[in-house]
Write a protein that binds this DNA or RNA. Structure first.
Length: 227
DNA sequence: ACGAGGATGCTCT
DNA sequence: GAGCATCCTCGTG
């Protein structure tokens, strides 16, 4: 499999476009002599002007000097860095920082399809079906061995990085509202591969709107920067 | 098949 | 003390 590591330039762009284009890309972790590879099948965008974004209160407060030690400070940092945080006290969630430095935004990785190193993933995840290995944001970090150690690390170089498959796979991309949030819940900023078994949540979920149908939605204004 | 509830810890009020 | 970008188990039908 021929792959090309994504550079910081890829992430230094409008967040919705990055989130959409990350669908089909690869998440790779090289560790202990083995290589874990997953194809990204579900992402969510979290933008600075978005009440669900962890940079929201900080931006609203117009506190340009972010307090040292604030975990979300990296969101305002260089594109391509990892933002990793503990959610519900138990699960590390992986994001990649987007947009130029100074803008607080990121893309959350919600699901990947196992491609390589599946034995290691099975060993880390005590589940019966392979479909359960990486079909959720907390599941995939366990399967890939991602935790606090990766916070602030660049995802543009080994051992943990994002890459494009050459040639790229032909995948459909669908859009829906984001999962598990209250504020900003109506924004259609979740991207996924319709029908892929590793997409999180219940199967046959509603909202199978194809991306091309977004013209008909009133959120076109927000999605303008997908071009 | 589906829903309710518990585990568990950090952040903000 | 509440809320949280979750996951799993154990009820019930």
């Amino acid at each position: 499999m021929k792959i090309e590591i994504l550079s910081p330039d890829f992430f230094s762009r409008p967040t919705l476009g990055v989130a959409r284009e990350l669908i089909g890309k690869l998440l790779v972790h090289e560790e202990n002599g083995h290589r874990l590879v997953g194809r990204i099948v579900e992402t969510e965008a979290y933008r600075e002007d978005d009440p669900a974004c962890h940079a929201w209160s900080e931006v609203k407060r117009r506190n340009s000097k972010t307090a040292a030690g604030w975990r979300g400070e990296v969101l305002m940092g260089e594109p391509g860095l990892a933002y990793v945080y503990l959610n519900y006290g138990m699960y590390w969630l992986l994001n990649v920082v987007t947009e130029p430095a100074g803008v607080g935004a990121a893309v959350l990785f919600r699901a990947v399809e196992p491609i390589e190193g599946i034995e290691v993933m099975r060993a880390r995840r005590a589940v019966r079906k392979d479909r359960e290995l990486t079909s959720g944001p907390g599941k995939l970090t366990v399967a890939f061995g991602i935790d606090d150690r990766h916070h602030r690390q660049p995802l543009t170089e080994p051992p943990l990085y994002l890459a494009a498959e050459v040639p790229p796979p032909a995948l459909r991309v669908a859009v829906s509202e984001r999962i598990g949030i209250n504020r900003g819940a109506e924004l259609p900023w979740r991207f996924y591969v319709p029908g892929n078994p590793w997409v999180s949540g219940k199967r046959d979920r509603k909202n199978l709107n194809e991306l091309n149908d977004l013209k008909d939605q009133k959120d076109l204004k927000d999605l303008k920067d997908l071009e």
